[in-house]
């Protein structure tokens, strides 16, 4: 029923997995987001592109926080990027901006993962 409300595209790259979201994350679509992303954060760094995400509720922000924690436990990162201004604003208002790795663009997020990889290699 809610298939068209949240579209999740996954692309497995060498150093990270790119997840692109289109639509909304609310009480009805968040489960799909959890199911698709949980296995990913357990195996690689994950970049989540928010550019086409129009809406996220407190439930969605909670899921994002859990995915970030899971990833950290496995020694990986979740980087969220290209967030729309009202979504960044609410994350700052609830003082969770320090808990997430937020980058302005997908290119910045990829750069971050790549520089991490180079540092580890040294």
């Amino acid at each position: 029923m809610f298939d068209d409300l949240l579209k999740i595209t996954v692309k497995d790259e060498r150093r990270y997995i790119l997840v692109s979201l289109v639509g909304i994350i609310d009480n009805n679509t968040y489960l799909d987001f959890v199911k698709r992303c949980t296995p990913l954060v357990n195996k690689k760094n994950v970049i989540i592109n928010f550019q086409e995400l129009k809406y996220i509720s407190s439930t969605g922000i909670g899921v994002l926080l859990k995915l970030t924690s899971l990833s950290k436990m496995k020694g990986y990162r979740v980087v969220i990027c290209a967030l729309r201004e009202p979504i960044i604003r609410i994350i700052k208002l609830i003082k969770m901006d320090k808990l997430f790795m937020i980058e302005e663009s997908m290119e910045d997020a990829i750069d971050l993962i790549n520089s991490d990889y180079k540092k580890k290699k040294k």
Partner: peptide, 19 residues
């Protein structure tokens, strides 16, 4: 601050609304 430390998000919806 507790939410940040414990990474809990329950109860945030009403707080977000009030903002």
């Amino acid at each position: 601050n507790k939410h940040k430390e414990l990474k809990k998000t329950g109860g945030l919806g009403i707080f977000m609304t009030r903002q």
